[in-house]
Nucleic acid binder design. Structure first.
Lengths: 257, 257
DNA sequence: CCAAAAGTGTTAGTCATACACCCATGC
DNA sequence: GCATGGGTGTATGACTAACACTTTTGG
């Protein structure tokens, strides 16, 4: 069987090329249709979903491995990516029992030992521009698509926890530094940005205070253009001043040398 | 030679009992004499210091492994311990070149391959009560002692970075949640607590505002006792209300299910 | 011209900062 | 008794939250 052969090849590759016992999991956020989305993968031959992940090459920095994995799933290269927590519980089979999980994965015994053995996993979250993503499954999965964050099903392993914690981190991040670049198209209106914030935070914000705060960050550039076509007064378009944006990010970011 | 034999045994044990490619590093903070201290280890036969670390048993949760390692170095069991960042750069030899580092460690070739090969390391920081710690070196080190945070020498690997980031995290933590339990003796005065905060933050605080803020958290219990012996007015003693303290911690802590 | 959304400014309230006074203790 | 630190209260400023009016657009 083709699958089994390829699997064997993969396991061999895993053992020689990648660090054992460590992996990466990605919570990739996108924003579309007024909804915050997460990219999930469906395991081959099952109805079960999980987060995209990756492994680390022997001579590869952890961050680079995360970037590479992200690129492989989305086709994107320039994105906001940040480590948020490392997961290392032995029982990472919260939602289904270990037996159940292994059954669901449908792997041959030897593959189980190699692939589903206990790993420590470093969680990263990414903010990407929805429209530019080409969701791409990997060898173990046959579907890759966006899910609304508030409609995530029971996932394999501890991946529901990962999303919860990623979201918490993202929300906290939002409160002390600007976010939005790469989550929105290049030009956007203030209401667009506000909707993004409201969606991430899960609560409504005051239109006028929001605008004041955003302009106060001094990272937005108001264009002459406006966005017509809506049924009402045409809002201005804005663009991130990338230089100032990066500066603001670096300023408050925890992990700057 | 005794050392070499023991080393071989250890390597074998490492390979069978612990996860490969992942390790733990600990930034253990204590407070004494108006100074914030970090526990460091001196490598056998060298003048070079590094952070205490540990490895993860196959059937052990990541957090438990960190607790265990902490216990081994300090003798303490009930302490504040928190994961703060995971380090995975290939070149974790910032301060000295890789050649230099390996030379310094003075390990036989085969041990180098096994022990100093590239690991991803999960950083934890701990707050402990200085007076109750019994610093204990491990097999590779011959001295374990406290260092003032502002007098840390060039450390092996990327351990200076780790301390920097741990301290940054601690400082941020301080600004949105109470800290002090287990860093101070059970009974302490308000000036004691303030000194702790000032030391961690590296800046002076207003005495009166500080007191207001602390009492506002509603986690302190003022005792009838006062602390005499100082040359001036005797300050009240306080104690943490453990229940309320834990609640306050849980409230704002990121990683609560 | 009307409904609905967008632009803008003003006020109130809360929280952090700055500061002043009195009191107790050991020398 | 006096120098020094500790206990407590009040005024001020900054930032956030609450809110109102006018303007513009498509239907």
């Amino acid at each position: 069987m083709e699958y089994k052969k390829e699997l064997q090849r993969l396991i061999a590759e895993f053992k020689t090329n990648y660090l054992s016992s460590v992996s990466i999991d990605l919570v990739i956020f996108g924003f579309h249709d007024g909804q915050l989305k997460v990219l999930l993968l469906r395991w081959k031959g099952t109805d079960d979903w999980c987060l995209p992940g990756g492994r680390i090459l022997h001579e590869e920095n952890l961050d680079e491995a995360a970037y590479r994995s992200l690129r492989e799933r989305t086709g994107l290269s320039e994105i906001f990516l940040q480590q948020f927590h490392t997961f290392g519980d032995v029982m990472r089979y919260k939602n289904f029992s270990k037996q159940e999980t292994l059954l669901k994965l449908g792997l041959p015994d030897e593959a189980q030992r190699e692939l589903v053995s206990r790993d420590v996993s470093v969680g990263y979250y990414a903010l990407v521009e929805f429209a530019e993503v080409t969701p791409t499954p990997d060898f173990f999965t046959e579907e890759c698509r966006w899910w609304d964050v508030d409609q995530i099903p029971l996932l394999l392993f501890d991946h529901n926890d990962m999303i919860t914690i990623a979201l918490k981190t993202l929300r906290r991040q939002l409160s002390y530094q600007p976010i939005g670049y790469k989550l929105l198209p290049e030009k956007f209106t203030m209401p667009d940005l506000q909707q993004l914030y409201e969606t991430i935070l899960g609560q409504e914000l005051d239109r006028r205070n929001f605008q004041k705060r955003m302009l106060g960050y001094n990272i937005l550039e108001r264009l002459e253009e406006r966005k017509f076509g809506g049924a009402h007064k045409a809002p201005y378009l804005y663009r991130f001043d990338k230089e100032k944006y990066e500066k603001a990010l670096a300023n408050e970011s925890l992990f700057v040398g």
